[in-house]
Amino acid sequence: MPEITYRQAVKEALSEEIERDENVVIIGEEVAQYNGAYKVTEGLLAKHGPKRVVDAPISEAGFIGMGVGASMLGIRPVMELMFWSFAYVAWDQMINNAASLRYMSGGLINVPIVIRGPANGGTSVGATHSHTPENFIANTPGLKVVCPATPYDAKGLMKAAIRDNDPVYVMESTVLYGNKGEVPEEDYIVPIGKADVKRTGADVSLIAHGRSVIMSLQAAEILENEHGIDCEVIDLRSIRPLDEETIIESVKKTGRAVLVEENKPFCGVDAQIAYLIQNRAFDYLDAPVQRISAIDAPAIYSPPLEKLQLPEADVIVKKVLKIC
């Protein structure tokens, strides 16, 4: 299987879906002539032409709302947010309109839109550009939200998102764009709502999504090599819908759970996961469920301090050692 970058994997998904379905159109700031602010869409304009790859003005509420409207009539817009942090200026379109149209119309309408872009900290761009709003999105019935951590998942989830008939919001990571991984050449999807056991283990379950999966895998190596602790790493991949069975199965096996996310702690995704575990696997737990989130402050600019703010492998190791 060829090894390609996360960035290349997303691009391949977009390009192949444009070829597969004439209604797929890419719209976003700098996606066409500039070849993408993070080069995810590089070469797509040249390959597919200006009808399928469209530069939008800096006008998120306008063009995202436009995409929602177009999707009601069967267009499948894939809207790029240069950063997910910019979603907040389009919130009414993304939350009120995209999520509620089906419900308020009694099921007469569906909104097959994809909104994608990076949502991560760790790049010294300050609080306004470092948001990870997957918990906000997952709080809204009608929306689906996925956070791929590897090139394989990035491509497979992107294809599933584009083929899905509901609004799917895909959160990538600029920190992961350069990561390489094996991606098959043949067509495949990763179903939305299916977690992945990225590493099997017997002593403790590390449950994570997005970049925290990579950090958890690094921590698992250290814990095995230096402490003889056998970690299982569960990659949620999808936040909503959620693969509860994989989580519960793992925790029942290991009896310990450490939840890792780059989200802020209060009402973060892992608050829901922790509730789930105590509700369905209480009798299997040998220790309280642990959480690691980003430190509960706006993302700090100062590069060395921002590194401390995010859940890195050493923090995960310490937390695991507390309960193992």
Binding site: A61, G62, F63, I64, G65, M66, G67, V68, G69, A70, S71, M72, L73, G74, I75, D92, Q93, N96, N97, L101, M104, S105, G106, L108, I109
Partner: peptide, 28 residues
């Protein structure tokens, strides 16, 4: 709503339907 009659709502947030209107036109 009556999409079968080309009627796309019915929107409660002031001005919130205006990008949708552009989107319908875009789709056409």
């Amino acid at each position: 709503f009556a999409p079968d009659k080309n009627y796309w709502g019915g929107h409660g947030i002031v001005g919130g339907q205006t990008p949708l209107g552009a989107g319908i036109a875009y789709a056409l």
